[in-house]
Simulated assay, not measured.
Amino acid sequence: MKKNIGKFISLVLTISILVLVVFDQTEGNAKLIERYDINDLDNQDLAINQQKLFSPHLGKSFTGFKEALGFKESQNDYFRVNQFGYLGKYQFGKSTLKVLGIHHPQLFLNNPELQEKAFIANTQRNKWVLRKDIKRFKGKLIKGVKVTESGILAAAHLAGPGSVKKFLRSYGETGFADANGATIRYYMKKFSGYDTSLIKPVKKVKVKYESA
């Protein structure tokens, strides 16, 4: 009888300890979640904060550049088509895709790998077109914004390299705004100071892909 009572007491103690451990872990997780309460976001987008919580900090790296630009364009949604027909994570227009040798918009939309290749290729092409302007204007202030290579390349993604040339050479007097009101100046400021040295200027670049 004493043996059975001893076993019962031992079992009760074991269960009590397990309950306390689980409660302590749950309470700890609750405190961790409270640290990222939506009321403490300081006007930043919730999705960005979730990404920072679960992803490595990309900083001003090239990966940080393209992910920040992709988030601005589509919230990094590879399958988004906006009201003007721009496609994918980086919101490419069909005319730009044709320049890059991509003639199947639906295939492009359904292929994240192809979209990443297209972004690299288009950035290489833009860097070639703007290579002299990057050298000439880098470090200068235009309309209160310090000109950087990454800012120029981001603006070229928005407006095309020709529009960026006009903006730079007119010292901001010749502007551009897309259908949503985004401007070259805004993109140059928002995407300033990223390391885009990995991108090499290429005069004529075509993206290779399987069409079927």
Score class of each variant (00 low, 15 high):
G59M: 01
P56I: 12
V129H: 01
Q115H: 08
K2T: 08
W128Q: 00
L198E: 10
V129F: 10
F84L: 12
T196C: 11
A154F: 07
P56K: 13
G160Q: 06
K140N: 11
K189D: 12
N43K: 11
A177W: 01
K140F: 04
T196A: 04
E73S: 06
D133A: 13
F84I: 10
K117S: 05
K206G: 01
A212T: 04
D40V: 01
S55K: 07
P105R: 03
I15Y: 03
L18V: 13
A30L: 14
L87W: 02
L141Y: 08
V19R: 04
M188C: 04
Q83N: 14
F119H: 04
L41V: 13
E27I: 09
K89C: 13
K206I: 05
E27K: 14
G139V: 10
G6K: 14
L32K: 15
I199M: 06
P112G: 00
V147N: 09
D133R: 11
R80P: 00
F167T: 01
I15M: 11
N49D: 04
I142C: 07
E34P: 00
F54A: 03
Y171S: 13
I134T: 04
D40E: 10
G64N: 05
R125V: 06
S163Q: 14
H104K: 15
A47N: 12
I48V: 15
G101K: 06
F119K: 02
A121Y: 08
K52E: 12
V21C: 07
I134G: 06
K203N: 08
G193R: 06
K127R: 14
K189A: 08
Y209F: 11
R35C: 03
K190H: 06
L100C: 07
E113I: 14
I48F: 02
G6Q: 14
V164M: 04
W128A: 01
N110L: 09
R125Y: 13
V207A: 03
T96R: 05
L107F: 01
K72F: 10
L69P: 09
K127E: 06
K31F: 05
N39F: 10
N76V: 03
I102S: 05
F71W: 15
E113R: 14
G181D: 06
V205D: 09
G28A: 14
K203P: 03
G193V: 05
K190A: 10
Y171Q: 12
M188A: 03
S192K: 04
G181H: 10
F167G: 02
L20N: 01
R131V: 02
L109Q: 03
G101S: 06
Q75Y: 11
E27A: 11
R80F: 02
K143Y: 00
F62Q: 05
K7A: 11
A212C: 04
Y78N: 15
